[in-house]
Simulated assay, not measured.
Amino acid sequence: MSLKIYSDGGSRGNPGKSAFAVVVTRNGEILEEYTEFLGVHTNNYAEYRGLICAITKALALKDDDVEFVMDSELVIKQMRGEYKVKSPDMKELNDDAKTLSSLIPNVRFTHVRRENPMISRADFLLNQTMDRN
């Protein structure tokens, strides 16, 4: 069965203290959780860093069918090519995410509302990380 990887990034202030979290699942079961403090950055930067980490986790698991799930409609639409990336800093992150995700044969990018339980879990984890730093 395919992997479903949830990621969320956030900052307190924009820019401000930032972090991301990733929740890796298969068949609804959590396989791994990961979070990282990023220092002072924008929310979009944190969202992209979370997605890049999620893609890296998928590549390490060598799964050829992966769905990446985020509550960032902007990042999801940029990854699908529905929105252009205007910021040079975000363009580099978007290029990195696209290059990495192209190594996965069957990849999907899905937007969900923040109320999604796994996105809520990722949000909780990243806020814990920001609290500790």
Rank of each mutant, 00 (worst) to 15 (best):
S87D: 15
D96K: 15
D95L: 13
D71K: 01
E82H: 00
P15T: 11
I55H: 03
N133V: 01
L125P: 01
P117G: 05
G10N: 02
Y34E: 15
L38G: 07
S11L: 07
D95A: 14
V85W: 02
F37S: 04
K77C: 00
G81D: 00
F109S: 03
L61Q: 07
V75R: 00
V22F: 07
R114E: 09
K84I: 00
G10C: 06
M90A: 09
S11K: 07
P105N: 12
A46M: 05
K77S: 01
P15H: 09
P105Q: 13
T25V: 11
I76V: 15
K86H: 11
E32H: 12
F68R: 10
T25D: 08
R26L: 08
V23C: 10
I30P: 08
S120M: 13
S87L: 11
M118I: 12
I119S: 04
F68K: 11
L103G: 03
R108F: 14
R132G: 04
A60R: 14
D63A: 13
N43P: 06
K98W: 08
E33Y: 05
L59P: 02
Y34K: 14
T129A: 14
D71P: 02
Y45P: 02
V23R: 01
A97Y: 02
N127D: 11
N43D: 04
E67T: 15
I104V: 14
G16N: 05
L126V: 03
N94M: 09
H111M: 02
A122D: 05
R80G: 01
